[in-house]
Design a protein around this nucleic acid. Sequence first.
DNA 1: TTGAGGTGGATTGCATACACTGATCCGTAG
DNA 2: CTACGGATCAGTGTATGCAATCCACCTCAA
Lengths: 235, 235
Amino acid sequence: MTDKDPTTAGTVRLAIERDIFNGDLAPGDALEETRLAARFGVSRTPVREAITQLVQAGLVTKRAHKRAVVSELDPGTLLELFEALSELEGAAAFLSASRMTPQEKSELLSIHAAAGENLQQGGDPNAYADLGFAFHQLIVRGCHNSVLIDTTEWLALRVLPYRRFQVVAPGRLQRNQADHDGIISAIVDGDAATARDLIQRHTLEQGDALMRFIALNKTSHADFHSTASIKGNVL
Amino acid sequence: MTDKDPTTAGTVRLAIERDIFNGDLAPGDALEETRLAARFGVSRTPVREAITQLVQAGLVTKRAHKRAVVSELDPGTLLELFEALSELEGAAAFLSASRMTPQEKSELLSIHAAAGENLQQGGDPNAYADLGFAFHQLIVRGCHNSVLIDTTEWLALRVLPYRRFQVVAPGRLQRNQADHDGIISAIVDGDAATARDLIQRHTLEQGDALMRFIALNKTSHADFHSTASIKGNVL
DNA sequence: TTGAGGTGGATTGCATACACTGATCCGTAG
DNA sequence: CTACGGATCAGTGTATGCAATCCACCTCAA
């Protein structure tokens, strides 16, 4: 996902991506080529290239002769996304259980421990979220199959803009940590089938939680954006 | 995968894709913007857009200031590709076992029957290959999760250029048909776990077969292209 | 008041021109 | 003969101009 880009188009693309993940560009917002070109101090051409790249990545949607907009995921698609993601993460975990190096496993353990510490001390939820993200990422990368890794992270990327809307329901973090507990011991024990099963359920539930939150806040994404004061992390 | 494209760039992209799948453009071949523009009678701009789309689709590789080339898959990547694909198809089959409509199931059965008939009568191997492709496609689409479908077909697309190199080893088609036999009955019976397991193994073995063929023909892709006189179908 | 039709502005799609990079080739020195 | 260095060139990366298209608004008539 991260590519070296001596090219302007690549830089612009990363900048736009960042805006999307930061929330400066919310789902549904329009990407105007001329405006972006002016903002970044480049011509329209690299902006156009950046946009077509984002379109292919699924982060942006475009119809001919219409402005490109940040992809808006309806609840149905979001559900499908999480279902697919859970399968991919499950597959990765299955492989990771037998393929992770001792070094990778210890790294996973230390991150998990740090997350637990943060949780007990009532630390920054955002920091916890970042640790959770790293946790998932380590497991996925532990499968040592770059195609599977890229595909999984590519899907994870698409739900990333919605992380901001994730509510920290009471007890949610504790349950999350407990889930991770089970997953990590399965992986360390090399119990591939259990690892797959647990992480799959885990990711599906995360999706459900997000869906419930959306259902409770039946409103436009732009509104989400301003109302979701408490932010957690799906991953 | 199929999109309506009133835009020139989309048309060019489809044309290039076809060239790749036809073999007119073999893995490793260079895509020269100027030449393609002249060939299609358009300017370089839509060609560039088409190429960036293909790059994002993984069919084409590009480095800054260097010519784009049709992606060349080394055996390692190919193996990873099949491993990931087997997981995705397994997941799809798992879901399809409980989600396919009776109509879809009967369609699956009739295609399978047609393939069997073709096999027994020693029909055209290419026709059999097409039926096999349709078989897999039906199963994948039967999961009714468009994200999973798109992702799976996207990966399948990347191995498509290598279908031409697939050898029809003695008894391979029969084994293939037998595999399909088991898969189809598992799906029709609604035995999700078995369906997943069988199709996963099946796809992995297809990858192995391709790998073996490549190992036997340790040569450049261009040579593959001319030496593989007998062509079958991976899917 | 409401619907149809026309008109103007905004924005993209494509073409062309220019700049810059990376590679090849050839000449010269060792 | 080989190694090194510079010039040349092919080819991409970017800028800009123009035409086609779409959308919103406005007008006007029923």
